[in-house]
């Protein structure tokens, strides 16, 4: 197969992916253990003026009750400005706050996954709600990128 054709395949495949994953949750991975991941998320949050509101240790909550360890924890992250903005512009978006992150333990380390903003963007197609969701999504992405760099 000629290199030009391979390039076309790659470009087409990239287009397909970009079309089909627009609404996917944000996700990053890093080769660290859960404890280090928690520390790094906390630092990344501070760097982006976000606050770690609550850590929900669903792994220990489940194992304590005799269930299998899912290797997951949930983090809630927020900012006062996000709450005030939602109160002012679209109170239904308070249901999305504080923002949730899931830490998933796997063989390679920890994967950090946000909620899927897609359904929310679909439900709120117009400004200002859409702008708010997009801003929170962008803020979350910047924080996740920072987490990877920590």
């Amino acid at each position: 197969m000629k290199p030009g054709l391979i390039k076309h395949f790659v470009v087409a495949f990239g287009l397909m992916l970009s079309l089909s994953t627009q609404a996917a949750p944000l996700s990053v991975s890093k080769a660290v253990d859960m404890r280090q991941a928690m520390d790094d998320v906390a630092l990344a949050a501070i760097n982006h003026e976000l606050v770690l509101v609550k850590m929900q240790p669903i792994d220990t909550a489940l194992t304590k009750r005799g269930f299998e360890d899912p290797g997951m924890r949930i983090l809630f992250i927020g900012s006062e400005s996000a709450v005030r903005w939602a109160e002012e512009a679209e109170p239904r978006l308070l249901n999305l706050l504080p923002l949730r992150l899931t830490l998933i333990k796997n063989e390679a380390g920890i994967t950090l996954v946000s909620d899927d903003f897609g359904p929310w963007l679909h439900e709120f197609p117009d400004a200002p709600a859409r702008l708010m969701i997009e801003a929170w999504q962008a803020e979350m992405k910047a924080m996740l990128d920072d987490f990877v760099r920590q």
Partner: peptide
């Protein structure tokens, strides 16, 4: 091929 792939994805 490029067109077919793009169209399938779309």
């Amino acid at each position: 091929l490029l067109f077919a792939l793009f169209w399938t994805g779309a």
